[in-house]
Every structure is written in C-alpha cells, then in structure tokens.
Design a protein around this nucleic acid. Sequence first.
DNA 1: CTTTAAATTTAGGTAAACCTAAAAAAATGT
DNA 2: ACATTTTTTTAGGTTTACCTAAATTTAAAG
Lengths: 219, 219
Amino acid sequence: MNFSVSEENYIKSIYRLQQQQEVVNTNSLAQELNTRAASVTDMLKKLQLKKLLDYEKYRGFKLNAAGNKIALTIVRRHRLWEYFLVTKLGFEWDKVHAIAEELEHVSSIELIQRLDSFLDHPQTDPHGDPIPDVHGKFTPIKQLNLGEIPEKKSVIVSSVSNQSSEMLELLNHNNIKIGTGLRVIKRFAFDGSIEIKVNKQATCILSEQVSKNIFVYHD
Amino acid sequence: MNFSVSEENYIKSIYRLQQQQEVVNTNSLAQELNTRAASVTDMLKKLQLKKLLDYEKYRGFKLNAAGNKIALTIVRRHRLWEYFLVTKLGFEWDKVHAIAEELEHVSSIELIQRLDSFLDHPQTDPHGDPIPDVHGKFTPIKQLNLGEIPEKKSVIVSSVSNQSSEMLELLNHNNIKIGTGLRVIKRFAFDGSIEIKVNKQATCILSEQVSKNIFVYHD
DNA sequence: CTTTAAATTTAGGTAAACCTAAAAAAATGT
DNA sequence: ACATTTTTTTAGGTTTACCTAAATTTAAAG
Ligand SMILES: [Mn+2]
Ligand SMILES: [Mn+2]
Ligand SMILES: [Mn+2]
Ligand SMILES: [Mn+2]
C-alpha cells in the first residue's frame, strides 16, 4: 500500500509515543504533531480503516502489527537520511531532523537500499538511535542513564535524548559525542551534578539536567 | 516565498515547455503534467496571483523573471539529485528521473549547497543537461545534433534527449555515454543511418532515429 | 452518587488540487 | 463572412487534511 505524507507522519508519531505509553491518547498525538484533537480523530478513523491501528472510541489507540511495520520503515528512512546528512554532507546533528522529516517521505524502495549500502549499513543515527534493518529489526542498546551511574564506573555514550542546539553546544564544548568514553568521578548529592572524566583526559562537571539526557552503556 | 509540490511541478513544466515554445498553451501543459486543461487553468490563476506568470486569458502564458528564477532553482535541485543518484548510489540514468522528481521538492537551501559541494560542483547531470548554479546561471553547451554531423568529423557526446531504458540499453551496448568521443565514418543517404567510430575503437551503425537523439559538441 | 472537569468525538466549514460537463473564445475551412 | 472545430475557461463537484465550536463520553472531586 501507499501512504500520504500526512499518514506517514501520523504513523511515525504514534510509534514514537508508544515507546513511552503502551496506549496512545488523542491529545498527546495532537500535541506531538502540532495539530488539533479533532484532526487527529479524523486521521485515526482513516488509519483504522486501512487496518493499521487498534482503536476504540474514547479508549485510546495503538499500532497493530501492520502499522508497526510501516512505522519502522519510515523510522529507517528517517535515520538513514540523518546519518547521510551528518557523515556525508557535514551537518551538525541539531540541523538534520527537520530535513530528514522531509526526505523520509521519498518513497523509492531501491533508493533506501542503495543509500544504506552507500553508507555501509550504519547501525545508529547521529543521535545514537538504532536504525531498523530492511525487515524492521534492530537491536535496542540497553540504555543506562548517566544520571544513575555510580562513582568510579566507566561507560560509553550511546545516545542523547535532548537533541537541541543548546545541548549540542554544551556537549561539543566538553568533547562529548556518541561513542565517547566517560568515567564518573564524583556525584554531588546537593544538586545531583556529577564530575566526569572525558576520554580519560579532561574532567568536567555536568548538571543533573544534562546527565539525565545522556544515555550510556557499560564499557 | 514558499511553494507547494504542485506549484513547483507546474513551474518546472512551464519552464521546460518554454525551451521549445516561446509562449506555452494550456493543453500542452496539461499533457506534460498528466492532468486536465481545467486543472491547469486553476493553477495558472494561482501562479499569476503569486506574480510568477505573464498570463492573458486564452492567449497563452510564460514565466516572468521571478518565475524563471524559481524554475531554475528547482531544475538545479532536480539535476543535482540525479547526479547524486548515479555517481554515488550507482543508479542507471533511466531510473533516476522519477526519484529526483520527489527529491527536488525538499526545501532546505543549506541541503542543496552542501550536496553541491559534496558532489564537487558538477556542471551537468547524468543526461548531459547543464546544472544551474546558485544564482540560476549555467552555460548552455551549444548542442549539435549527431544526425547532422558530416563525415570525418570528430565530436564528443554532450547529452541525450531520449532518456528511456531502451535508449540506455542501445547506448550501453555500443559503449556510448556522456563524454564519449565519436567520429562519423559514413552517412547513408538511403535511410539516414550513420557509421561511427566509438572512442577510436569499435565502429557501429546508428539509425537516424537514434542519432537524432544524441547531441554532441566539437572535439 | 452526583457534580464538575477533562478528554474525545461529531458537526459543519475551509483551502488546495484535482475532476467532468457546459459555456465561451479563438482558430480554421470553405 | 460564416459555420465548424479546437482550445480554453467557467461552473459546480470530490477528496484530503486541516479548522472551530458544540456535543458526548470518561475521569475526578466532593
Ligand atoms: Mn516527516
Ligand atoms: Mn535521530
Ligand atoms: Mn517533482
Ligand atoms: Mn536529467
């Protein structure tokens, strides 16, 4: 089947919200998509008619198996394009999302296959999020929150949940990116801030607000 | 200003038709866009309102300076993407047009600037058509038709006006592509066919139908 | 168990981009 | 010049994806 840009955006947003809430509700989807609840209801009916959605009036909704598969192909396209934009065209990570939001709707299957080969089958996008393969499969890295790593433990940055320019600026300043090795030196109970060593070199202090947005895995 | 996918497709098609006819008429545009005359009239009013078009009811229409500029940026995007698809992703030339037809509508200006740099500022697309620069300027190669090159003259293939798979197959078979050197050995008055030497090596016979679609410049 | 508040859906409407059929204008043939 | 054909426009629909405002359902509070 073939989907409109709007349908694809709805599907992807529902998928995203499902990572947090088992069942999605109308208002949160409306907020996510910058639209109104009434518009969401319209689209829900359409997606249900196309058999991508489990939906009961007033009770919330979620993607069924078919819907999930579609969502994963869109996520795959989005993240491959983001990877392309950063590694080949030299964009900073905070600039790629909006562009990938458009590119992800280009529908050629062969295009994505070839792009994937050209990029050497990357496993994660510039924000550390996993890229599903052609069949929608991916290995979710088990994410530990830097805010909860105890002192003296060494970890590697796997992803960052806040992908704003401000966050990027802060991380760049401290030479932290996806794949960087960190060691928690000291935790300050007073404000939740932590002192860390970056790549076995410089140390720096991160506020709790920052460390909560950084996800890591064990060394 | 910002244009819809539909508006951009109309603008580009009008531009294309203007290369052949000074003033464009409703029916030919409808045919070009696979739509109906009434739909074209609707869009003409809109483009006129947006001041991109010189248009007088029943009298035909053409892009004004502003419209032309827009057209050239869309052509630029289209051809850069085609070049990317062929040189980086390894597509054959007959497969890229439809995909570029979608990619050309991705609106980021920085994307196209960076893509252009990444590709090393190519001058022509895979079909030999010139790629306009950021300001819409390009040097139109003066096109000679292979069907009119006299015997014993050597030329270089600059573009091919029929970009079908069938044409590609025939050219591939004879090792002819953009940039290939050709020498006209003999012209046969009987059917307009010509014997040519390809890259100073093998010779082959091209029908008039084929040679008319190949454009060349002097060695 | 009501009453009130919040979430969701329905009703009815708009704009973009299409369409068919009919009317109007321009071009053509004799 | 006038009738006929062709081209183009207008009139009036449709579909998609939005919207606001009102009605309905569910959840929360007293
Ligand atoms: Mn999108
Ligand atoms: Mn991402
Ligand atoms: Mn297009
Ligand atoms: Mn081309």
